[in-house]
């Protein structure tokens, strides 16, 4: 398993390297001392696992995840004190290790990792809205709705607002899974429950989670073509 260590303190990286010697299955593909370096490193190595410090100059750990646009590997936070910040994770909580890291805690965190999971890009999204954060598998997001320059995400019972435009997100999301219903909404095809015809001849879609989405004329045609065998 390829891993990257991100921490602004050289000795902290040294400690982690030392502890990882006991886990030969983890191959250290590189180290970064801040968010910007980490971004470049991630683009070059596409690791399976990221050991991530939270407080760093420039881009901090959360900023880094936000920049990754969904292509995030499995993440283990390493932190001296920000437990409280990490408790903000509500869905798919990530593991975190408190520095100085106890070897047993590291072993436990590694054993919990999904080793079978292929390193598939774009399979999960880091979402932050105010103080709350989520790591959401894309398959769980059933609707994205444009609100000005921001986008509201629908998954589970959550409706966080993402500081990215719907157009930017659409470009990143796998086109075979998501479909643009109209100017404001992007829906997950896997979540379609029923399709109906509206009085004006367009399609309306009811999602398994409840919401009903009306398609524009052009997109109705497209969806018909897509759904017909």
């Amino acid at each position: 398993m390829k891993a990257i260590l991100v921490d602004d303190e050289p000795l902290a990286r040294y400690e982690l390297r030392r502890l990882l010697r006991a886990h030969p299955e983890v191959e250290i593909a590189g180290e970064a001392e801040d968010g910007e370096q980490a971004l470049r490193l991630l683009a070059g190595t596409s690791p399976d696992l990221l050991f991530l410090d939270i407080q760093m100059p420039g881009l901090n750990g959360f900023d880094l995840l936000e920049r990754l646009d969904g292509a995030i590997p499995q993440v283990i936070f390493t932190t001296a004190y920000e437990e409280h910040a990490l408790r903000a994770f509500e869905v798919n909580a990530l593991d975190y290790l408190l520095k100085p890291i106890a070897p047993e805690r590291l072993a436990a965190a590694l054993s919990r990792l999904d080793t079978r999971r292929p390193s598939a890009p774009l399979s999960q999204l880091f979402v932050r809205d105010g103080d709350r954060c989520w790591i959401v598998p894309l398959s769980g997001i059933y609707l994205l709705e444009s609100e000005g320059n921001y986008t509201r995400l629908y998954f589970g019972k959550e409706r966080p607002l993402l500081r990215r435009s719907l157009n930017a997100l659409e470009r990143r999301l796998a086109p075979q899974a998501f479909f643009r219903a109209n100017r404001r909404q992007l829906l997950n095809l896997q979540w379609i429950d029923q399709t109906q015809l509206t009085p004006n001849g367009n399609l309306a879609v009811t999602l398994k989670a409840g919401p009903r989405v009306e398609l524009s004329r052009r997109q109705s045609e497209l969806l018909r073509a897509k759904l017909s065998p």
Partner: peptide, 19 residues
């Protein structure tokens, strides 16, 4: 006593014990 400074210092010192 709490945050960053103390635990990060302890972490650095643990690395220094080796180095």
């Amino acid at each position: 006593l709490n945050p960053h400074f103390l635990f990060n210092s302890l972490n650095s010192i643990r690395a220094l014990v080796d180095l």
